[in-house]
Design a protein around this nucleic acid. Structure first.
Lengths: 364, 364
DNA sequence: AGAAGCCTGTTAAACGTTTTACAGAAAAAC
DNA sequence: GTTTTTCTGTAAAACGTTTAACAGGCTTCT
């Protein structure tokens, strides 16, 4: 009852073959005769044999594990990403090692180091700054790496997958402008994060062009509660905007929390365009109009790129850019249509004029 | 520029010591003279040496990795758990290997097998059925295992950590009864899941005792959208209840979605007690009254148990039971206070009479 | 029929660590 | 002054697998 550990040698003995044959049966590295194969499988099954990944990896150098590094495991956006990646990886026989950098450069560095110590066959990361993490510098040509979501603005030495963030901001702004909003507040998480800067730029550029004046931009951070407090603080000492664009799912939460606490209704007097699309956004009386990121496609693109690299693709880095779309619901008031006040009783959501279908588009 | 891999041997050569000494420096297994130690560290740093975990693990049998298995990586409850566990594990120098069973027994089996192939030093799992997964049967005395959240009702052969689910259901029911509600609907995810059955039992027992009749129980599944559709379907062909208890965070979402789509207001005419406590629950005009699970404490208890086991604790399995509490907000109407209708303009949430502080309580 | 080529299976040598057994030097005990 | 003990470092043997090199038994080709 207390057999210490069953190895390939035990299986070989029981099946009456050499250990190499057993290895070949499991790794599929060399073909093996059908009935021998059956004998081996039977023996392995009876002994409840499992190949030891450490030994396997040590000898072969092949890890069948990929590291996944994200900035925050409490942010649904990132966990959705992890969830999708787990499914894709599992389909291809890979396990995933997840680590969170908690948006801290030092922690990112150390988490990367420990991930690399596993000698993974690949790495998918959402880095927490624009600079290439020091720990990855030496790995550039060696280890397949894909950056997702947060990609350096000036191109990267590794493969990247992200949405067109500038356009995402623009879509939000265009929607509000089309509905007659003139006093738009832009709520960002942090301008230190380049995709956020891009979203802000997209929104601000359009607003400036159309209205000839700069919208106000505020930073609410990456924590919903603290963000809500910050926004509350802002609301108390500034005139109420007619609409706010939240550029992140947690900023959306912060915005809604603060508005709720101030007992300010949506979409009248304040309209809101949120970011990302999660069940809670439609689980409310006035569903949230939001910019939808195609998370499944981001994950898929990242995985496909990583898989190609792991298979030996040596082409220069590619940068996939996916499209975000507008998910129109009821949180934006139509000021252009007419001056009627109060909650709209019109059950029809506004049609989506902007064309929201997400489709991949390879660049560079 | 293309050195293939730097091993302990290279470091030893450069530092002018034996490989055993280098190993001792890094593993801390045997003390080593201070200046030798410094030489080794310097050499290692210059070569950017990293110990190879596969080799290390193969020889020592020590993995410094723990497997984490959850039923659904898109459910915030589980990802919060993973997030907390990642922090705790990292603090103790462990990495985590995450896998999702997607609530499928077969997948759970296969995911467990691949986790076990890593020979992890421990395993934290939220199983998807009451039965001990077949893959774990052989590991019982060998591998430290902790089950969290979903624990078999009749005790378990492994350590478990969970909340008092019966009481959680009871608290929700008591709150509604105290507010004068008589027509209560219980929305569960799936009665196949034992903690859900317990919550249902807690709520139903109390309601039966107080009111002398059985409340209606419906199953909405573990997907928010499908659950919303199911509840909508139910609402269309049954009389409106005065209150609904949602026993899961996704059932809460389903419930709110369906009510929103029916344009039924909260808390009047329908009150809602939700489950779990997430930012989106307070990011609404009428904040959600909900049963709060102490996720951080669940994670901590699970990790502490696992750590003790990994350190060699051989005591019989323990079963920690934590307390859930009521987070009172504005989604429950007070029918007892008076017959006034319409949205309450009273900004004060009802005081929490039930005593919500969560505290660990060891059992068995 | 004999040589050449393919299968299919085996033997043995890695892979990079940890760890046991041991050796030499310094310190302590007699 | 010798012996014992303690301390530090080293040599070498694992750990369980993959894989290169090889060895037979076939088929296939001259």
């Amino acid at each position: 009852m207390d057999n210490p550990r069953v190895t390939i040698r035990d299986v070989a003995a029981r099946a009456g073959v050499s250990i190499a044959t057993v290895s070949n049966v499991f790794s599929g590295n060399k073909p093996v005769n059908a009935d021998l194969r059956a004998r081996v499988l039977k023996a392995a099954d009876e002994l409840a044999y499992q190949v030891d990944r450490a030994a396997s990896q040590l000898r072969s150098g092949q890890a069948r594990v990929v590291g996944v590094l994200v900035p925050d495991l409490d942010d649904v956006f990132f966990t959705s990403l992890v969830s999708q990646l787990e499914v894709l990886a599992q389909k291809d026989g890979y396990d995933i090692l997840v680590a969170s950098s908690r948006d801290d450069l030092g922690l990112e560095q150390s988490r990367l180091r420990t991930l690399l110590a596993w000698r993974p066959s690949g790495l998918i990361a959402v880095p927490c700054s624009d600079a290439l993490p020091e720990a990855l510098r030496h790995e550039i040509g060696r280890l397949p790496i894909v950056f997702a979501d947060r990609v350096p603005p000036e191109g990267s030495v590794v493969d990247t997958v992200a949405i067109d963030n500038r356009e995402a901001g623009e879509i939000a702004a265009r929607h509000l402008l089309a509905k007659g909003h003139r006093d738009i507040l832009v709520a960002a998480s942090s301008l230190a994060i380049s995709p956020i800067r891009e979203r802000v730029r997209g929104a601000c550029d359009l607003i400036r062009t159309m209205l000839g004046r700069e919208p106000t931009v505020i930073e609410l951070g990456s924590n919903a509660d603290r963000g809500a407090a910050a926004f509350l603080h802002w609301l108390e000492r500034h005139p109420q905007p007619s609409a706010v664009i939240a550029l992140t799912n947690v900023t959306t939460l912060s915005t809604l929390s603060a508005l709720a606490r101030m007992r300010i209704d949506i979409p009248d007097p304040v309209s809101v365009v949120g970011f990302d699309d999660y069940p809670w956004m439609s689980a409310r009386k006035t569903g949230l109009t939001a910019i939808r990121q195609p998370i499944a496609e981001i994950a898929e693109a990242a995985w496909n790129r990583l898989r190609a690299r792991m298979a030996g693709d040596q082409a220069p880095p590619t940068h996939s850019v996916l499209q975000a779309g507008l998910q129109a619901r009821d949180s934006v008031r139509d000021l252009a249509a007419g001056p009627e006040r109060g909650n709209s009783h019109d059950p029809d959501p506004h049609p989506n004029l902007e064309g929201a279908a997400a489709s991949p588009k390879a660049v560079h």
